[in-house]
Design a protein around this nucleic acid. Structure first.
Lengths: 203, 203
DNA sequence: TTGACAAGTAAACGACAGTTTACTACTATA
DNA sequence: TATAGTAGTAAACTGTCGTTTACTTGTCAA
């Protein structure tokens, strides 16, 4: 059962993501649900409260998701060195692609990302939040990857900061560019190719 | 001599880039110049006209810049194969970095990029414009690079679409991330490292 | 010196913003 | 069946929006 409060949140998010917070009126939000703007105030104390609730909701969702994706870290341990490396890399790849699908295809996450994009220059907190979500989502696990790479790529040498950039930037860019494309799976395919290319170049 | 009309344009751009078009009031713009909002209408027919003038102005600037950077294309021609490749690559690198500095450090270009970023989801035209500026700026010359690479990297095989992504994405990402950083030269340094890394991996 | 023009101000305009208020209908519980 | 409480409406409130109008300057050419 979708409560009205919930529906308001979602309708508002959709509008904020397209037009930006200031450009969306309370009447517009209420109109999406076929009611009048006064009714909003039965559920939220003001417009800003809706925005803040969206941010809280995303935080909850993210925690939930992080719990599901919790890295076992110990499930695989004693195998041959190569097969260990390979399964580790496969996991990183699967995780990266899952994250990409989430931030481009999941309606809530995708809208949330766009909303933050539109507010990022007005508010340092929001700029931080945006980077935190996008980066921590992929990078934290990417750091594991980089550690693996550094461990196994015996020639050593490669700057891990650069490696992280090389790995993450194409994913980041495709995330932004997928917004203008209907078939998100095309973008997923590009990301997959990129990751293959990257991992190949690490051998 | 900076005309008032010019000053209005610049003040408006700065505000649009931070808050988005709708969130900026005519009073705010006029206030930046110490005058009242009515005065704006002596120079522009309405608020939208200011926005459109900014876009036109950027177009002029871009053409001007393209003229300066016009690729000679014939200046160097008959040398040894390696030295030809090396100077070609050096030129691409210099161009990419110049473009990066332009879009992050030049006040007008940087603000313009942010402004388009904030309007991209409301208007398909603007989304196209944003991609056109960022991509055509680096990519057109990058395609030359890719042609060079394809020609000289005799093993062939590498998907040029992926190569373009690998080359451009880190530049694109650093462009966006530099907005949150005071010292843009740090970002330039990262970009330089990336290009070196990329070109090294192409040998 | 005069008169046209350019560039500003202050005030008014209607529209709409976010918010509050008074009221109505429905639902569930005692 | 009476009564609270919930969730909606319509209207009013105050303020600001973008824009227009009427008026005041200062400048500069005839």
């Amino acid at each position: 059962m979708e409560t009205t409060k919930e529906l308001i949140l979602i309708a508002a998010l959709r509008l904020f993501a397209k037009n930006g917070y200031e450009a969306v009126s309370t009447r517009q939000i209420a109109g999406q649900l076929g009611m009048t703007k006064g009714a909003l105030y039965k559920h939220y104390k003001n417009k800003r409260d809706i925005f803040d609730s969206i941010v809280s909701r995303m935080r909850e969702r993210d925690l939930e998701r992080a719990r599901e994706f919790g890295v076992p870290k110990d499930s695989l341990s004693k195998e041959t060195e190569e097969s260990y490396r390979d399964t580790a890399l496969e996991k990183i790849k699967a995780f990266s692609i899952a994250q990409f699908r989430y931030w481009t295809k999941d309606e809530f996450a995708s809208s949330f990302r766009k909303m933050l994009t539109l507010e990022q220059y007005r508010n340092q907190e929001i700029a931080d939040l945006l980077r935190q979500y996008l980066i921590s989502g992929v990078i934290t696990h990417t750091q594991d990857l980089m550690r693996e790479v550094a461990k196994l790529h015996h020639k050593g040498g490669k700057d891990p900061q650069i490696l992280a950039l090389e790995y993450f930037a194409p994913i980041y860019m495709m995330m932004n560019f997928s917004d203008g494309i209907d078939d998100k799976e095309e973008a997923v395919l590009m990301v997959e190719k990129h990751i293959n290319y990257f991992m190949e170049s690490m051998r």
